[in-house]
Amino acid sequence: MKISFVINNKKVSLDVEPSMRLLDVIRNELHLTGTKEGCGEGECGACTVLINEEPVNSCLYPAINAANKNIMTIEGFRETNEYRVIADAFADRGGSQCGFCTPGMILVTYSLLKKNPHPSEEEIRFALSGNLCRCTGYQAIVDAVKVAAVKGIKL
């Protein structure tokens, strides 16, 4: 079935099964491998992408549900000024170690700060609660989000 959407500001039209996981569309059809597969069952958030600016787990997202929507992966987000501010904050606070969860963490951070530019620690932890990290123990990530919020993303 022909499915059209915008991904990283580019219009794309693909002939794929409607039930194909969006994660597989992104990694295997479009060769955008910044989006990671962790658990494959919606628990870890490594496969997070933004759809119409909302974070979702692409491992459970049927491709057809993305039709005519706007998808942003880490590759597209990397081209923005907001990415620079968040990535620098993660580097500054040691918010990324092995890096596997980082694309998801960064996209969720962006979506949080866009809606709520000055979140409390509790709000940060709530927003990141679907993204697991096995390295940092989370504190460094929470600190990085706070730094990014202070630096202010001109949104």
């Binding site: 996981r21 597969e37 459970l60």
Partner: peptide, 22 residues
């Protein structure tokens, strides 16, 4: 019947790169 997929896509999941097993 598929809505958001968060249950059905887990129940029918076969593995990375594979189509769900409907």
């Amino acid at each position: 019947i598929m809505a958001g997929g968060t249950d059905l896509m887990v129940q029918k999941h076969r593995g990375s790169g594979l189509l769900p097993n409907f």
